[in-house]
Amino acid sequence: MQNLRILGLFARTQFLRSLAPRQSWLVYVFTLLPSFVALAIGLNARRIDAEGVAMHLSWFLFLQVVVPLVTLLAGQAVISREVDDRTITYLFSRPISRPAMFVGRALGALGFTALLLGAGALLLCYAASFAPQGLVPNPERFPLAPWSGDGVVLPILGAVLLGSLAYTLMFAALGVFTRHPMILGLLYTFAVEGFLSNLPGSNQALTVQYYLRSWIAAHGAQGWSKLEGFGLADFQSPAGVLLRLGLLAALALALGSWRIRRKEFVLSS
């Protein structure tokens, strides 16, 4: 019960802390950029439809760049910011369960990234709908458009939320294991997720991106398969995606909790 209380306290403080624009302006900029681009294209382009704008921007920018970067910035800060700022001493000299602290913070960060990126994805779709041949979602009916039928908005939203879950918790755990989670996270984002996921063959299954694509492929409209690099692999079933990404998230939480229990953070004076 005490652990749950601590977990909740940390989740709430981490979430509120992340929301503060002073701390997270960078994350907001990254998240909103594709929406601005979508709006600019939607308002100015002549030969393009809303579906195309939403799919291209969410696939090439949002899922492959913005989601990993935003979750990296938010996830790695769960522990490493405390270490960098040398405030972790205050936490580790209190009678709290360290795993509860880690899980609470990680879930707080997850809440923030899921909310922000989810909102960013919806905003992107909304901005895209201003394209002259706005197919889905129709700006007049948004947000009451029949999303489930359009094969664009819901798949994007689902993939973004799943990506937030997997990446945020992975990067949070990374922050427990290493003093330089940002560097390793960037290497992972660009070298593994950016490179491996675009190679043909079964290597793709080693990346989170592959499962996000699988999710979209299972729920998305025909237009998705025309995107470059999208149809390079046999996709997982939605149940398989949920199972694997859920396992990955749980594993990240478990490993982070296990490591932080006895880890000492040596701060220089």
Binding site: R17, A20, R22, Q23, D85, R86, T87, T89, Y90, F92, S93, R94, P95, I96, S97, R98, R261, R262, E264, L267, S269
Partner: peptide, 23 residues
């Protein structure tokens, strides 16, 4: 002492570094 919650109940620690939660 290390990571001992029972001990931390009776301990007050004022570290050297000036770091606080600035927000």
């Amino acid at each position: 002492p290390f990571a001992n919650r029972e001990y931390f109940r009776v301990l007050g620690f004022c570290p050297q570094q000036d770091a606080l939660y600035e927000e």
